[in-house]
Design a protein around this nucleic acid. Structure first.
Lengths: 204, 204
DNA sequence: TTTTTTACCGACCACTTGGTCGGAAAAAAA
DNA sequence: TTTTTTTCCGACCAAGTGGTCGGTAAAAAA
């Protein structure tokens, strides 16, 4: 069941290069030939492993994109500390990584959600699944933050999660055009401001 | 200089239909033939009026997209009232329009910025020009809000503008996937929350 | 060793892409 | 009316597009 190593290896190579180009040029602006050329592989190899361009992309979403988002935005948000500080740190790190990445083309998830919105519901659904996990994760950490006394009890966790995701997706889109450092700084500052309005009002 | 009415009319028809399809399917996923077919016009007509697909799109940006963004997000933000209320109203209206639009494919400006990010700098620049006007407009109304006593003097207007634009672009992207009503509600609620943390701390 | 399966090649297919061009209606100018 | 200019037609082009398919090395099984 795992003896098909060659198979897995080739598929993985294709997926990695595929994602690279799809992310860089967009799905519709990247041909299978482009990917094959940069891998020195042939059409036959591609259609031996994947049924179609769409099938190929779905496999990329489920294998690579999912992991990227998890490791960058979902897994770092855990622990019993102050959720505001945790999210802050997570976003700051993510933005900093993007800022220092010479090859940044925006937030991968948001880019593809935007590109496939209403144009390919199959792919859209897979992408939205990742989004939902992220959202649920944010909500749960905020809820825990309430019982831990960090988050004001009147706060609407789902609303906050939506707002956080929205704003993050937005800055990431803007950051591609340059001026990242400034954008990140301004964004983080306002994020902290926003958070401060959600924290428990201490009388200390 | 304005006697070329026929010319202007045909060009306008092409631009309107072009924008429709570009917005719906994306630039790279829409061919000139698609547009021509839905207009019952020929290639000759197209290349008589426009030099290339790119030139065509630029003209759409400068003639149609600019106006859409202005009328929806820039012009409504004027007046000497409380900037928070004005922006709130403007965003609420914009989101409501989107929500009730059966043919909504997201925020037009953000969609194209995302699609052309780093892939076509010429078009990107024209799009970013619109973004900048929007930003400047938000900043100036916030600054005025300070002297009018609505906005706390310590607030970083540019930071707020960035945060506002980011979050707006983000929700609009999310709204395409449905659940718009809920998203809009949650977003607006958090926006108000955020604003409340920026308002002058009255002791009344 | 022989046989079978896996993995890959690359010519080929029908179709679409952005773009060109000679010409012809239609409209305006003479 | 004739001439000129404007507007548009549609056949055509080279270069792709996603996808198929008969074939073939290499690896695994017999």
């Amino acid at each position: 069941m795992d003896k098909n190593l060659k198979r897995m290896a080739t598929m993985h190579r294709m997926q990695v290069t595929g994602l690279e180009l799809f992310y860089k040029n967009g799905y519709y602006n990247t041909s299978i030939d482009d990917i094959l050329k940069s891998l020195s592989l042939s059409k036959g190899a591609f259609y031996y492993h994947f049924q179609s361009k769409e099938d190929f992309f779905v496999s990329i979403v489920q294998n690579l994109i999912v992991r990227k988002v998890y490791s960058m935005l979902i897994e770092p948000i855990e622990g019993k500390e102050n959720p505001f500080r945790v999210i802050e740190k997570c976003f700051e790190d993510a933005l900093e990584t993007a800022e220092h990445n010479e090859m940044d083309y925006g937030f991968i998830l948001s880019n593809f959600i935007s590109e496939f919105n209403r144009r390919n519901t199959v792919i859209s659904n897979y992408l939205m699944d990742i989004y939902k996990v992220w959202e649920v994760n944010l909500v749960s950490i905020l809820q825990k933050g309430k019982s831990d006394g960090y988050v004001d009890r009147h706060v609407d966790s789902e609303g906050v999660a939506t707002y956080l995701i929205s704003s993050y997706m937005g800055v990431r889109t803007l950051m591609v055009q340059g001026n990242c450092r400034n954008l990140r700084y301004k964004y983080m500052q306002q994020l902290r401001h926003y958070f401060s309005s959600l924290a428990t009002k201490e009388i200390a």
